[in-house]
Design a protein around this nucleic acid. Sequence first.
RNA 1: GGCGACAUAGCCAAGUGGCAAGGCAGCGGUCUGCAAAACCGCUAUCCCCGGUUCGAAUCCGGGUGUCGCCUCCA
Length: 492
Amino acid sequence: MGLRVYNTLTRTKQDFVPRTPGRVDIYQCGITPYDYTHMGHARQYVFWDTVRRYLRWRGFEVFCVQNVTDVDDKIIAKANERGTSPAEVAAEYHEDFLDVMDRLGVERPDVFPKVTEHIQDIIRVIEGLVEKGYAYQVDGDVFFDVTRFPDYGKLSRRSPDEMMAGARVEVDPRKRNAMDFALWKASKPGEPAWDSPWGPGRPGWHIECSALALKYLGSGFDFHGGGDELIFPHHENEIAQSEAYTGQEPFARYFVHHAMLNVGDAKMSKSLGNFFAVRDVLRQYEPGVIRYYFASRHYRSPASYSADELEAARRAYERLRSTLDAARRRIADAGRTGASGRASQAPADDEASSAGSRGDELSKAASEAREKFIQGMDDDFNTAVALAAVHDLARSVNDALHSGSEVSSGGLRRAVDTMEELGGILGLFREKEEGAADSGLMDGLVELLVQVRGELRAKKEWALADRIRDGLREMGIVLEDTASGTVWKREK
RNA sequence: GGCGACAUAGCCAAGUGGCAAGGCAGCGGUCUGCAAAACCGCUAUCCCCGGUUCGAAUCCGGGUGUCGCCUCCA
């Protein structure tokens, strides 16, 4: 069984059949940089990063395009407020986006087009639509005529009539139909403007995605991604424009929409002002914790952001990581002491020894985890199941590590490699080694204290030994006395 | 008003017909000088009412509640 994906176009899970065998072309709606990137954005890009990593791991070539809407009403408004240029505002927040995405381990798209650098491409599409009679000009504006596109509403499953009945906004009287939308907006004085056949102006909101997707991916690419808030009108309009322009359908084969991230009962959004900037959250939590948090729930379920939930993710993530640390330590010990150590060098398939059978169990656990992981991810990118598979494997590793019997480093290594491999697809375990400038001195001091405490323990001077442990704990250094000696780590 | 989602343990969260994953918190046990970590065990009438079925958290109908979209939005 292969990959199945929920497609908003059909409202069902479908077998994934790529346009080009062995290749997956993705278009994602990017951000409008007029404020800091928040956790809601992170949800989208972390999810798609995982999708890309997974598909590549499964042997696909993956190509991803993501736009940057660097000209828009909000950007202009912010620039006026500050007395700077829209370009400066866009650049500043685009930088923030790049920075936090890099830190979250989100790979950059293969093509990252800015709207302002593709005005001519956009104008060409609008011209085509006007020529074919799908769009009309009024004053300096150009509108798309939805009545000329009979399939309008096929994605969001609503008809223009229905929407008119419930419309809550007053309609621009110059439009032929209430649902018509702007392809080109005449510029007002002081606004950024580009020359066009209809006079100076700038692109409407929806047309950029059509123009950019068609330019870099062509009609009929595989995945179109975005938040479910974009189903209507944004993606509905993209489909109308694109299919009207090319005369081909589908514009995109699979529309994949992720659910919103809420705060309390309301959607996290820049316009509501109730957002948590990723850069702020990163001050408190490692990237892996944030990725764990997102991976632990399905992308199509609305999630509620809270400090408690991140804290729970942090502990769970810590658990996985300390398992990895302990296993690596055991492997290193085995390497140092050879076959006489606690972990023997016997290969995992040495069935004669107990170490061999332990190794076999771990090898088996590793392949079971791999299977469960694939099964989960193949089922509409169920990262929660995939994560559970990593946890299952971690339990097996801990069990082996603490069972007291010998463990073959072959099996252990296989389990550790699998944890890292699968976790890596979810973006876990990517934190760099602690590498602060003063950490050399810090590490030395802690080591010294740990050694002294070890000597105190040997003399059964428990009170003093405990004082060192408690004192370090208060400073965020946690000591654990394991069978092979005391280990310490920073609490993060 | 129209369209569409969702409702699973104290909390978060998988699960689209066959004994209810995983995590956080809690309790009991093992291990430990004591801890920590880890492992084992315990904690669910799957929102309510009907229906279909040998069998339903899962399918159908009704109800209640929450959310999203219809306006900028990831």
